[in-house]
Write a protein that binds this DNA or RNA. Structure first.
Length: 288
DNA sequence: TTCAATGTTTAGAC
DNA sequence: GGTCTAAACATTGA
């Protein structure tokens, strides 16, 4: 389930695994997963090296020696798997939790490195993509996305959040924090958790929030994202020739997908509600 | 058979 | 322009 903590976890794992590696081949079986003809991908990628792996919002950015950039978005059901002779790293959606059968029918892009290790991009629903851009193109692409601040940087202060909130007073809290134009990285899981942390109903209008509540939302976003990164996300598994281990944050979820169950805090029932087309779970007693 | 699922964009209505 | 909803992408699984 790639939200910011999952993508950050993948970034860290991948950084150790592929930086410095030389690309020997690239393949894709789904034209919509890539943004240029396959031949062009191969021409540009073959022989170059991975210089760095970064994250922007929920995207991964691979910087290449020849100054091209690869942008990867896993969307809802994407997964990245790195495999060499000794180890296997899986990040993102839990499609495959073992590395035996790769590529599989969900594999839509494959990077082959010169040492014969591989990076597989798998996606059940085919919403995700792997794009290739020059440094200039990438800058323009980012500009067009109009992304809000990264919540885990010093730029994201509670004053900064208050400022952005002022521009959308009618928006509902959950939708507001999930919109990447306001701030990036928070999706359906963590937005429910942040609302619970701040004791605010997800359908509250941003304009009705008190200063105290805004501060709690700000604190909650940072605290929950950090905790989820510590736990390696909600579905990450990372293992070396042994059993896979699910992302540990699942155990810390307070409300997400817990509708019908008892609130850990007041023992009342968690209810659910559709907000902006997405299911939101919250405790009507604890959250006002 | 129907519904919901981790993300994001876009079209149309008011 | 703001804000709402539904739909689009494509597939699985309950």
């Amino acid at each position: 389930m790639p939200e910011l903590p999952e993508v950050e976890t993948i970034k860290r794992g991948l950084k150790k695994a592929i930086v410095g590696k030389k690309i020997a081949d690239f393949d894709s079986d789904w034209h919509k997963a890539i943004n240029k003809p396959l031949r062009q991908y191969q021409r540009i990628l073959m022989g170059t090296k991975i210089l760095n792996v970064d994250r922007r919002a929920k995207m991964l950015v691979l910087t290449l020696l020849n100054d091209w950039r690869i942008l990867v978005h896993l969307k809802m059901t994407g997964q990245l798997v790195f495999r060499d002779k000794k180890k296997c790293l899986i990040g993102g959606h839990s499609i495959e939790t073992n590395c035996e059968n790769l590529p599989n029918k969900f594999t839509h892009a494959i990077f082959t490195f010169a040492d014969d290790s591989h990076l597989y991009f798998n996606d059940v629903r085919k919403f995700g993509w792997v794009r290739l851009y020059s440094a200039n193109e990438l800058a323009k692409v980012f500009e067009k996305m109009q992304l809000g601040p990264e919540p885990l940087t010093s730029e994201f202060t509670s004053g900064c959040l208050t400022e952005i909130m002022r521009q959308r007073p009618k928006a509902r809290v959950k939708q507001f924090i999930m919109d990447p134009k306001n701030l990036v990285g928070v999706g359906n899981i963590y937005s429910d958790e942040v609302c619970f942390f701040a004791r605010v109903r997800p359908d509250r209008r941003v304009g009705t929030l008190k200063d105290k509540e805004i501060k709690l939302i700000h604190k909650g976003i940072i605290k929950i994202l950090k905790a989820a990164i510590m736990a390696q996300g909600t579905t990450f598994s990372n293992y070396v020739n042994t059993d896979g281990e699910a992302g540990a944050f699942t155990k810390q979820l307070k409300v997400y997908q817990r509708h019908g169950k008892k609130c850990y805090s007041c023992k009342g029932r968690i209810i659910k509600m559709k907000i902006g087309g997405r299911t939101s779970s919250f405790c009507p007693k604890c959250q006002k």
